[in-house]
Amino acid sequence: MIRIIVSADPIDVAAELARLEVPEAGAVATFTGRVRGDDGVETLELEHYPGATERALEQLAQDACARWPLAAATIVHRVGAMTPGERIVFVGTASAHRAAALEACAFLIDRLKTDAPFWKRETVAGAARWVEARAGDTAAATRWAS
C-alpha cells in the first residue's frame, strides 16, 4: 500500500503513523524532516514540478516495495512557504520485521533528496536565495545503487 502526498498542508505525523500500522506490520519506521532555523533562516519555500514530483515519489516507493517486503510505504512532502520547526517531509515504511522497515525508510529519504523535483529557497535577513544541492546528498543516494 503506497501513499504519496504533495501538499501545502501541515503534516499530521500521528495520522500518517496510524495509517502505517496495518495488521501485517510488526515494524514501522519513520523519518521526519523539519525546517532548520540555523544560519538565520526565516522562511523556507518549496517549489515542485506538479505531476512529475508525484510520479517520481511513486516510482521511489515502488522501487522500495520491489526491494524490501513492505506492507506499506508513505511519503508526504510539503510545498509552499514554511518557517523553522515546521515539518517538510515525512517518510514511513511498514514491514513484518525491523530491518526491512528501517532500510527502506533510509532508502526513501536518501533517494528522495536526489530523485524528486523539489527546490528550496530560503530567506535570511530578508534576502531570498536558492539552496544549492549538496554533494553529500548525492553520495547518500548512490550508496543504494547496487
Partner: peptide, 10 residues
C-alpha cells in the same frame, strides 16, 4: 521538456 537546477528537496 523541463529545465531546472539540481533538486534540493527533503
Amino acid at each position: 521538456v523541463a529545465i531546472f537546477p539540481p533538486v534540493t528537496g527533503g
